[in-house]
Simulated scan of single mutants.
Amino acid sequence: MSSTSAISQTSGTASGQAHKKLAILGCGKLGTILLQGFLEHGLLSAAEAVATVQHEDRCESLSASLGGVAVSTNNRESVRGAPTVLIAVKPQIMAQVLEEIAPAITPGTLVISVVASTTLAFLQEKLGKDVAIIRAMPNTPAMVGAAMTALAAGKTTTHEQLESTRKLFESVGRVAIVDEKHMDAITALSASGPAFVFVILESLAEAGVKVGLPRELATTLAAQTLYGSAQLALQTGHHPALLKDAVTTPAGCTIEGLIELEKGGLRVTLMNAVIKTAARAKELMSNG
């Protein structure tokens, strides 16, 4: 069986799409990254996908960049006949989009939402109790196949639908199946986390320039150091403190730098960044 079985098929046609498998609503940065990953890993072909954008002037250029995927501004027509729908719109317009597409969503359709702070209960209420719902929270390293995605399934979602969704997101990185109650924290740690890491990367590179390194070399050294350190933590499973201690020799260079990090409050600043971001995610959910 080919890898394209990760997405259910339908024998019908809609919007000129034969055997349409997937509709992505809101093909902005994240939606485009995900669709490119699915296409590149052979989970579906360009002819089996449709995508939507908010502004019509983007349709032609986006379609060309995605190898001919049909792109329009019509969300309702795009989901019609698609067994799997992935929603990647901004949280502020989520309710409007759900109301627009609900009449075209049939029982048994799998709807995957990557929209922050939109609960399974809200999605189920808007789309109906017979629609399978999964919340997914990926991050932008999906662009290079290194995403971290969390999945939380609704009550009507089958094991097969959850597994097919897992396969979709495994094409762009790692996947964890979680309880929905953790989603705000996951939004803060892994979805917003790349922004925090890039600040650290930028700071390390700037420091390299300050001590005499060419900027390009400093950036490469800093990026590879972060990448290698992450790989070491993932592959060994060792606690970060143990890995840190392995680098830190008595009366050596590293301990001097660690003391400065403690003086600057790096540890508590990063903790507070995640805590504040999680609180904002919860606030957005309440306002929604």
Rank of each mutant, 00 (worst) to 15 (best):
M1Q: 07
I7K: 03
S8C: 11
S15Y: 01
K21C: 05
A23M: 06
G37K: 13
E40A: 15
E40L: 12
H41D: 09
L43N: 07
L44M: 04
V53P: 10
H55G: 06
E60H: 11
S61N: 06
L66P: 12
L66W: 09
A70P: 08
T73I: 15
E77D: 14
S78C: 12
A82L: 05
I87G: 02
V89R: 00
A95I: 05
A95M: 10
Q96P: 07
E100I: 01
T106P: 09
L110Q: 10
L110R: 04
V114T: 14
A121M: 09
L123A: 00
E125F: 02
K126E: 01
K129F: 09
V131C: 03
I133W: 06
A136S: 11
P141I: 04
P141T: 05
V144A: 08
A146D: 09
M148R: 10
A150W: 03
L151F: 14
A152M: 08
E160C: 08
L162R: 12
S164D: 02
S164T: 10
R166D: 12
F169P: 10
F169G: 11
E170L: 04
V175P: 15
I177F: 11
H182C: 06
M183Y: 01
S190D: 00
F196Y: 15
I200V: 15
L201D: 08
S203H: 03
V211D: 01
G212L: 05
P214F: 01
L217A: 12
L221E: 02
A222S: 13
L234C: 05
Q235E: 10
H239P: 06
H239F: 13
P240W: 02
A241K: 04
L243W: 13
K244S: 13
A246L: 02
V247D: 00
T248Q: 10
G252Y: 09
G252T: 14
C253N: 11
E262M: 13
K263W: 06
K263A: 11
L266P: 01
R267W: 06
R267T: 14
L270R: 10
N272C: 04
A273P: 08
K276F: 05
A278H: 03
A279G: 04
A279T: 13
R280W: 10
K282S: 13
L284I: 14
L284N: 02
L284Q: 05
